[in-house]
Amino acid sequence: MFTGSKRVLLATFAALVPITLIGVFPLFMGRFQVVLLTEIIIWGVFALSFDLIYGYTGMLSFGQSIFFGVGAYVLTYGMTWELGLLLSLVMVLLSGALLGLIIGAVAVKVRGAKFFLVTLVGAILFHLVALDNRWLTGGDDGLLVPLQFGGVVDNFYLIYGVGLFAALVTLVIVRSPVGLVFRMIKGDKKRAELLGYWTDGYRILSFAISGALAGLAGGLYGYTTGFVSADFFHWSYSADAVIWTVLGGSGTVAGPFIGAALLTFIKESLSSTWGVIYPVFVGLLLIGLVIGFPGGIVGLVKRVASWTVSGKEGSTDE
């Protein structure tokens, strides 16, 4: 049986091993693998942004692609105006948070299926508007991002650092008193309100933080690929974030990264003939997860661990 502090120690250790391994990865691997891993970290941050509002605050949003697209374009214009990478990324974070506040304030007015729909329609609208305003977005031909990085490995370490930063910030937030309120709202919004919390305010806050993270992912993706287009707003990006999070384990910080890594890896390693069935595979996987393993991979690991370690003791979220 583990007491609270021992469990924290164990979890820290369990997290440090993969973090270190990923850190030394470029020393041993080729260019292709490093690029793939860079992409996986970006997708992990993106999925994490979704996990914050769904896994922690309980709002199933399909609107993450809005922030992804906006983040990518803000970075593009920041680089075009020669603000430098750091300032551009700060602008990306701020614009994501601001947009999150605005969209959140509108979306929290409705709940349940309506909420899902409002966020989905929001994503569709942003996509259409982006396609329609070529002067700003370049439409589906897109824009080129002026690049300034030295190479694949340099870029990897940049993304690695930002990814670690994002994961740490999220961890601090979800373990803070504010994070506890998020989880209370997920459990029973009505009850949290009765305890005196302004739940809509917290939901909007959750949206804003999530928007900043999703924008960050979009900015990093644009920066890495050197290209952005109106299709970054397409809601299928939102759907990807949903699937990665559910597979890895919602309501955990590690889950979104694990899910994103696994599915991106599978997708990339399928040959062109088998690549065709990838959507069918993901669809069936999602059905299976929802029915059999709603806790995802992390949930499964935790369950197995608590059986083998202490028989009955319930574990809590990390």
Binding site: L180, R183, K186, G187, D188, E193, L194, L195, Y197, G314
Partner: peptide, 30 residues
């Protein structure tokens, strides 16, 4: 509704109300 609690009224509803996915400590802390 939320201001009732802030102004000094607490309410125990007919059905048990603790958050089921949280621990006892987290419920109390919340």
């Amino acid at each position: 509704e939320r201001e009732f609690s802030r102004d000094g009224i607490s309410y125990i509803s007919q059905r048990p109300g603790p958050f089921r996915d949280l621990t006892v400590e987290e419920n109390l802390r919340g």
